[in-house]
Design a protein around this nucleic acid. Structure first.
Lengths: 199, 199
DNA sequence: AATTGGTTTGACCATTTGGTCAAATGCAAA
DNA sequence: TTTGCATTTGACCAAATGGTCAAACCAATT
């Protein structure tokens, strides 16, 4: 098996930007070729079809995302520290615009997740872990599935909805970015404060 | 000025569903016409162009959304009750899939918000209101702009990212829906708990 | 019945778009 | 230099798509 050539990598990188910003339906093979400085025929030489090219890019995005949200039991941090790490990592990942890309395309065609689902473990690791934290009486009573939703929400939404939040807060893109500098930390504290048992 | 005819309303309703589920780029004038049971030519008779039709539908969506998030000072509820009302209303609105629609299209073409921005008030009402709540010492110290982002996140994200959250939690669509029945209330409590000053 | 004006549509058009292919190009091995 | 193989591309194609238009349709008025 041959390693993917430089040209191939360059095309993937170019196409990724196009797909992430314009979505599958808004992206043209011609504009990918133009951006990559090659002919459309060459583009088809490396990746037979638009679907084929898109699939590779979408799967790469998932490969980055999934490990990020699946890691909960494999270190020695306490639950607060785990939350802080998770929040930090996810907020950073989301910043690149990959999350809106994933959500948009999954909604366009939910079947693109099917293959992944088969491979997935039977249990959600966050839920498993926080059920045990809850059993130890360290956090207050709350459905841990709700918790999972809440945690993902506060991490992902600010970047996904940047355009509107920014405008609602009357901030320039730069100002919004500055506000977001401290967001990951604030969000983690917010989350911990919301569920921690007070003495 | 004539009131819009029944046909016109019916087309708008049909087109709304198409645009909301498939997005601007994924929607075909022909499929709107088919779904409405009329010819493509008739569709163009009522709405000159795809852009024209889309603009009306997008603005209707914003007209529903904006008042929802702008109401903070005009009643006698205390801040916890206001949060509960807001969370309930927004979660319900989002459920219809309108929010992903808005986000998707704003990201496709940020300029579609420009007209609205000019009309907008200089101050964000949530921030103004919660700054005063904070000044009264009722909530703990936190940047109220972060609070605004956090509150919108927990209200909007669960419906926007339903597909993935549902799969991550290993739930069927029906089960996810059941989980979401109680979500608005849980989210409001979560939010209040996170910022309320403890005695 | 004839006229009028809004409504509806089949047929058609120009452009866009994903995809193909034979020919050309470059390049390393023989 | 020649052979062979991967790479690159201009030209081309078929289907899809937004949009147009003259003709047909239909209900109300004269």
């Amino acid at each position: 098996m041959q390693l993917s050539s430089d040209t191939e990598k360059m095309i993937l990188e170019t196409a990724r930007k196009e797909f992430e910003t314009k979505g599958y339906n808004g992206t043209r093979m011609q504009s990918i070729a133009d951006a990559a400085g090659i002919s459309k025929a060459s583009l088809h030489y490396y990746f037979r079809s638009k679907d084929n090219l898109f699939e590779k890019i979408f799967n790469d995005a998932l490969d980055e995302y999934v490990p990020l949200i699946s890691t909960w039991a494999d270190d020695q941090l306490n639950w607060e520290e785990k939350i802080k790490r998770f929040t930090h990592d996810l907020v950073h990942f989301i910043k690149q615009g990959k999350m809106l890309f994933i959500i948009r395309e999954v909604n366009r065609d939910p079947s693109i997740l099917e293959e992944r689902i088969k491979r997935a473990k039977a249990q959600n690791k966050f839920v498993t872990y926080f059920d045990s934290v809850q059993a130890e009486g360290k956090i207050r009573k709350i459905d841990t599935r709700h918790l999972y939703v809440l945690l993902n929400s506060i991490c992902c939404f600010p970047a996904i909805n940047q355009q509107m939040l920014q405008k609602a807060l009357r901030l320039s893109p730069k100002q919004y970015d500055e506000l977001m500098q401290s967001y990951a930390e604030v969000a983690a504290d917010f989350f911990i404060h919301a569920i921690k048992k007070m003495k």
